[in-house]
Amino acid sequence: MSDVIAPETAAPAAKVETPFRRFVSEFFESRIATVALCVLGLIILLAVLAPWITPQNPYDLAQVDVLDGRLPPGSEAFAGYTMWLGSDGSGRDLYSAILYGLRISLSVGVASGIIALAIGMAIGLLAAYAGGRTENIIMRVVDLQLSFPAALVALMLVAILGKGIDKIILALVVAQWAYYARTVRGTALVERNKEYVEAAQCLGLSRLRVVFRHILPNCLAPLIVVGTVQTAHAISLEATLSFLGVGLPQTEPSLGVLIANGFEYMLSGRYWISVFPGLALLFTVVSINLVGDQLRDVLNPRLKK
């Protein structure tokens, strides 16, 4: 009997619990976060596969028929397929338009998030590395910028810069870098007060080494958390600016542009033109936020028992 049991008891022991594996299992402890991650995965998949799973390229004028305009959900298009989510004012199939819109919204959000993260991290590390007066000045600027809401900073920038996808990304980056810089600096502050850093300095290790070997790795977890939340924020912000007509132009129809286009029809009861792109935006932002919330709970060592 013992011969039979032995391999079974040995198997779990062989399964070394790596930090990554523990992180994964802790993440999926929350049912809401699991669902949110699945929804988010589905949204990304739909956005990536958009050209292959939509009946129409909504921006190829040859495929759009104005006669199909403002059809309610479930109507049949002139070309023969069913418009499950209806059509917009100029006859585009909303389902197709939403998936193409998602591509733009997600790209802008992720691109601005990554650039802001890179810049914010570099500046935060510079502050941590330089210390003294440089750090003071950098952090004053960060504090100053954070005293203005990101939405307002972005709005001020697009007011000066004008429309366009590059300008929106620039505005979002400027509006958000400070959050990353503060995160990196905050972690650096905690690490720097730890004894091993003092010990490292006594040993004559260079400050550069302390920054890259100790401070940077410790920043990664908080940066991931801030990054998720800020990306959701960026997507929502871009949609807001586009909705106001000061974000992306009609030629780059993100979800915000689609919602804005449907706004005028809403008062006459044609809800679907605004509501469906709005729901897509909602699911995207809420699912990213829920994933971010759970990441924070799992990655934050202070909350661990």
Binding site: S236, A239, T240, F263, V275, G278, L290
Partner: peptide, 22 residues
């Protein structure tokens, strides 16, 4: 409150108009 944090302001505005006005 979590929902309140996640929903974009303009979208909530649209929904308020649709529900209470339209």
């Amino acid at each position: 409150s979590i929902l309140g944090f996640s929903l974009p302001t303009f979208w909530v505005g649209l929904m308020l108009i649709m529900l209470f006005a339209v």
